[in-house]
Design a protein around this nucleic acid. Sequence first.
DNA 1: CGGGGTTTTTGATCCAGATCACATAGTGCG
DNA 2: CGCACTATGTGATCTGGATCAAAAACCCCG
Lengths: 250, 250
Amino acid sequence: MYGENAPPSWARLPGARCRAVEHLTKLEGLKEFELLEGLDEGFFQALAISAEVLELGAGTALYREGEPSGAVYFMHEGRVKLYRSIGGPKARDQILGVVGDGSVLGLGAALEGRTQSQGATALTDCVLYAVFRDDLFDVMGRFPAGAVRLNRVLAARARELEDLVGDLVFRSAPQRVARMLLNLATEEGRVTKRGVVFEPSLSRQEMAEATGISREALSRALSRLAQEDILDLDGKTITILKPAELRSRT
Amino acid sequence: MYGENAPPSWARLPGARCRAVEHLTKLEGLKEFELLEGLDEGFFQALAISAEVLELGAGTALYREGEPSGAVYFMHEGRVKLYRSIGGPKARDQILGVVGDGSVLGLGAALEGRTQSQGATALTDCVLYAVFRDDLFDVMGRFPAGAVRLNRVLAARARELEDLVGDLVFRSAPQRVARMLLNLATEEGRVTKRGVVFEPSLSRQEMAEATGISREALSRALSRLAQEDILDLDGKTITILKPAELRSRT
DNA sequence: CGGGGTTTTTGATCCAGATCACATAGTGCG
DNA sequence: CGCACTATGTGATCTGGATCAAAAACCCCG
């Protein structure tokens, strides 16, 4: 049923389920992807035929580092963290990025024909289109313009990783925290009179993992910003009171 | 003459020169690329027609971060370092990788149609094939299998960058130095009775930049390894006396 | 071959963040 | 609603590597 591919992980994920969806609905959903804008109708038809709708609950891993890569995923809705892990007595993760609506996951490993180079876990409930690797390659072969668009995802991902390396090496922990807060606010926040308010999809521990520091150092950095009235911390809710001042700290 | 592309940087590089080369020679040279193995003859013909041979002297920048990306480069011979830089009073670089024979440079920025995301500077004298971006895309469009191969380069690069992030976050400076030495020895060393001998293409400063530490910390790490008789340092020449022991330090 | 400039090594000092411990806050289940 | 467990915040201490300074080694040019 799966050809020579390993069955993709969603076939047996506890927190995930496939949902039968009308072809037309899939078609319309795929056309919403900004990265695919303007492509040939035939491309969307072929992709929609291959795609299955996958619903993932928050906290569920889409795939783990080291797993075979049988499919590529198009994120219609939701947010997912991508990360590297290290095991042993001091096991922990390093978040490589957080991706949202309109992103593509798992393409690199699929293209290389190797195991997943990172893990991907849902931060929120997600709706994705899953496409078997071979089906996707077939569509890409028939629609080179579509292939170019998808491969741009890889190029963009590499650039973001270079940005992360630069941050880790050139910038101090407080600078990285400031930048992470501004990015999260841009993606998840809403503007109010007091400032930009958001309840991050990342826990404090995950925020620390996104900035390459311990959770204690993250707490200290947030506390210092709160003491300077740049931030207001209220349980999980964060309000950036002085965005320009925070920006000057990056 | 250059169409709507900016003229690529080699047209005006002091340390670089284009060399007129027979089509057949270019053809044979391109067929040596392991990543292109087994592709259609037509692909190589088309690529060879588009390619110009570029000779780069050691120390010459192929492109710099932020420059427009007009071409993609196929490295026939030589070694190049890829790096991110930060300016200001404490200007420095972070080496993202060192690439050698058979690698492809500049594809990501070309695909995104954005400026170069990193710098590329020759560590040794190099011979590369330069292909204008639009010419390459034309060839990729006509030969999808070739496009897949090239795009694997992007996927591989992203994986290597993830490895680098993991190293920087999860491993200490001495561990990163040990790993860097083993990698350099594998790429540039020769096995003798005493151990693996090499004269690194990277200076000490660059070795430090490849491992995310200061040049003083690199010197101290090398000295400690020498004191433990794991390494022998003789001017620029490094001999790994105990590779297995060094491996246990990564 | 000598001198000037650059690179590298070594020593001393400092500090940013890790680590450990513990208290407090938050959450989910019975 | 209470309890057990997890997440988070704060305090104290430690340390790995940065930084600064200076000496030594190396390299290139005249």
